[in-house]
């Protein structure tokens, strides 16, 4: 890497690692439900607005009375990409497929697509949402192709 003609730089002695504690108390129901295999989101008790991602405060009427409702797990693929150059914190991952799918309820979800052949994926493809646990036990959700067998959410 060293370039003999490169201008001199001072490689700073101080390094900084940032790891955030992200508050999730207002949406913890979502993560808890996901851990139990359910896909839920918020619906405003005042105006009826359903929001995904879930949020406690209604962006439509500014009301603060969310009700948790279960969403269907069937989605239609709107668009996708195959990420081959991955960022620093995903550097050990194999390339991954990310899609945006539209739920029957009309909201869109962005998530990885598991087990699909990138060359065969197309807008309009049927997807299903399933829950997963990461290495630290934290729940997250992915899309799978529905022909991969019965739902595991």
């Amino acid at each position: 890497m060293a370039d003999d003609n490169a201008p001199p730089t001072l490689h700073s002695k101080r390094s900084l690692t940032l790891r955030f504690n992200i508050p999730i108390s207002k949406t913890s129901r979502f993560w808890d439900a996901l851990g139990e295999g359910k896909f839920v989101t918020t619906k405003c008790e005042d105006c009826g607005k359903v929001t995904f991602p879930p949020q406690a405060d209604c962006p439509n009427c500014l009301g603060g009375n969310p009700k948790w409702v279960e969403l269907g797990t069937e989605a239609e693929l709107l668009t996708f990409t195959h990420v081959q150059i991955t960022p620093t914190s995903f550097v050990d991952h194999d390339p991954y497929l990310v899609a945006i799918g539209r739920l029957k309820e009309g909201m869109n979800v962005l998530a990885w697509v598991e087990g699909a052949d990138p060359a065969k994926l197309k807008p309009g493809a049927k997807l299903r949402i399933e829950s997963r646990k990461d290495a630290e036990g934290g729940p997250y959700y992915v899309f799978v192709l529905p022909d991969r067998g019965p739902a595991r959410l």
């Binding site: 992200i22 999730i24 991602p53 709107l78 668009t79 996708f80 990409t81 195959h82 990420v83 150059i85 991955t86 960022p87 914190s89 995903f90 991952h93 991954y96 990310v98 945006i100 962005l110 998530a111 990885w112 197309k122 807008p123 990461d134 997250y140």
Partner: peptide, 25 residues
């Protein structure tokens, strides 16, 4: 960050690739 990066490692090219794939289709 929480909904599109934490678990899915999106990149700037990946965001625009979603648009490119849709525009192509």
């Amino acid at each position: 960050y929480l909904w599109e990066f934490e678990n899915y490692g999106m990149t700037f090219p990946a965001y625009y690739a979603l648009y490119a794939a849709s525009h192509m289709s």
